[in-house]
Structure formats: C-alpha cells, structure tokens
C-alpha cells in the first residue's frame, strides 16, 4: 500500500481547504451530506489499516463503529466531547482487543468468517438486550462542545457547518496519524505481513502481536467515526453495527483503490455521491449499490486511485 507523496498531500490539503470553505456556499443539506461522506471516510480509512496495509479482510468492523456511537448513549449525557470521544475510541478499541484476540487465531477466509460472526454477536448485544435501548435505536444527547472549560453553544442553523469542520478535523487527524504510522517500523512490518506473514515471522517479528495492535487501533479509529456519526445524528441504532455497514466500507476501499492509503477517502466520497445521485433515478438504493459493486469488481479492480495508472 502506498502513501501519497508530497504532491498528493498538497492536493489533499487543497481539497480539505475547499471542504472547509463549503459553509460559505453550500446549503445545510449539502453540508450534512459532506459530513456523512467525511464520517464514512474516517470509517473506511480505519478499515484500510487492516485490509490495505495488513491484508486482513474483516467483515465485523462495523461493530466497532457502532460501539463508538453507542458510547455516547451509554455515557451520562452532557459530558464534554473531549471526554466522550476518547471514551468512544477506548471502548471500541477494548472490544476490538477481545474480538481480535480470538479472530486473529485464524487467517484468510476463516478470519473473515470469525470477524463476521463476532461482529454479529455484538450487533445482537445491542439489538436484543436492554443495554442498547432496543432494536429501533435510541435518541442521544449530543456531547457538549467544550474547550478549556468554555462551552461553545452552537445555534441550530450553524450546527451543520460546525459538525462539518469537526469531522474534517477528525479525518485530517486520522489520515495524518495513519500516514505517519506507515512510515514507522510498525507500518513496514504490517505491510510485510500482508506480503508474506511466514517470512516476517522467520525474520523474528511477532506477527500475531503486530496484527493485534493494528486490529485494536483500527477498532478505536472506527469508534471515533461512530462517535462522529452519533454526534451528527443525535441518534444511534443497531444497524450501525450490522455487517452490511462494514461491507459498505469494504466497497469504499475497493472503489477508491486498495493500493493507496488515501483510496478510502476517494471511495467514501464517490460512494456517498453515487448514493445521492441515484436517489434522483430510483428509490431502490440496494439495487444501485449492488450494480455499482458488480461494475467495480468486474471492470475496475484497482479502484479510482488506479485509474490514472
């Protein structure tokens, strides 16, 4: 998996500035749409750490997204976002540690099946037990935007812009973190495992631990995306944990390009854009989604990031 060079980062910084300026020109509806794409991008990016870097195709990743979102419901209302965000990441990371410790005992397709099964198990925890507030979901109080003791009170009509900036900031931070991580020994080792795990082990790397660390980190980052979603919607439901949601993130990764760290960001925007465009033609979102996936896997196996090559 490649990380964009200086020119690529410059382009992405320009795009980020352009998105930050959106509130000057776009309607609140379109700001919310952009926010949705940003949250999806964080989620897909967290999964890219597993799939693109480590070669671990997980189908249970949405569970950690959902746990991050449900953290807002489980914590007492009115807390500062500076508390709830780390708590969401921590809870999701802890769940990922438990699931990863089991699932990583398997490889390849068995890893895929076990992550799917454990992901569904967590889905049922929030779907069936009183912990999650029922299968239809539950409204939550947005965490307070508090900085150094000052509570920033956002009027309702400015909220979409505020959330957009918040989500953009999170996406930039997550991307920067992962880009930096890819340059470390850990990042190289992870990519080495994707290429040939046995050889990495023979070289003396504790591949099990490296994969587990990646799994936990990816889970925690997915929890951040889930928290952002709960912040945006003030609502959480068990569907956030459903494996279909995780499969959509895989689609974003494939759509954007498996081979590049920035691929999932392109993919997320393309996915949300396509979904929005298709509402003009048909109500049947799943039909469109299914056909898009078929087209991509049949005709565009290297994703949008591979188009230029």
């Amino acid at each position: 998996m490649i990380v964009a060079g200086r020119r690529g980062h410059l382009l992405m910084a320009l795009a980020a500035v352009a998105i930050a300026c959106l509130p000057l020109v776009a309607s609140n509806y379109h700001l919310q749409l952009a926010s949705t794409a940003l949250v999806a991008a964080i989620f897909a990016l967290s999964l890219q750490l597993l799939v693109g870097a480590g070669g671990m195709v997980s189908l249970g990743h949405a569970a950690f997204f959902g746990i991050g979102a449900y953290a807002v419901h489980l914590l007492p209302p009115g807390l500062s976002v500076l508390l709830t965000l780390p708590a969401a990441a921590g809870l999701a990371g802890a769940a990922a540690l438990l699931v990863g410790a089991m699932a990583l005992r398997t490889r390849g397709f068995f890893f895929l099946m076990t992550t799917l099964a454990f992901g569904q198990m967590l889905f049922f925890v929030f779907h069936d037990t009183p912990l999650g507030g029922g299968k239809d979901g539950v409204f939550v109080t947005r965490p307070a935007l508090e900085l150094l003791g000052f509570v920033i009170d956002v009027p309702r009509r400015d909220r979409p812009a505020m959330l957009l900036w918040l989500n953009l900031g999170l996406l930039v931070a997550v991307y920067a973190l992962l880009a930096a991580l890819m340059g470390t020994l850990f990042g190289h080792a992870l990519r080495g495992i994707r290429a040939n795990e046995d050889r990495m082990r023979a070289l003396g790397y504790d591949t099990g631990r490296i994969k587990l660390v990646a799994f936990v980190l990816a889970g925690a980052l997915a929890g951040i995306a889930g928290h952002a979603q709960a912040m945006a919607d003030a609502f959480v439901n068990p569907e956030m944990l459903a494996w279909h949601h995780g499969a959509e993130a895989l689609l974003m990764i494939l759509l954007g390009g498996l081979g590049a760290l920035h691929g999932p960001i392109l993919g997320a925007f393309a996915f949300v854009g396509l979904g929005e465009a298709s509402t003009l033609i048909t109500e049947r979102q799943r039909l469109v989604e299914g056909l898009v996936i078929l087209a991509v896997v049949l005709a565009l196996p290297r994703g949008l990031a591979g188009l230029g090559r």
Binding site: V57, R286, I293, L294, V297
Partner: peptide
Amino acid sequence: RFYTRDHLDQVLLTFALILLFEEARSL
C-alpha cells in the same frame, strides 16, 4: 473469474449478489 482474485473482490462480488437477490425478491 474470481477464483484467483483477492479476498476483497470475492467478498464484494458475493455481497453484491445478496443485494441483487434481495432486490429481485422485493420487486
């Protein structure tokens, strides 16, 4: 065509089939 492709491609191909079968059933 997919026997030699990546896991990810196979997963998404069959995920797409789920969506299409369900849509066909719904229609």
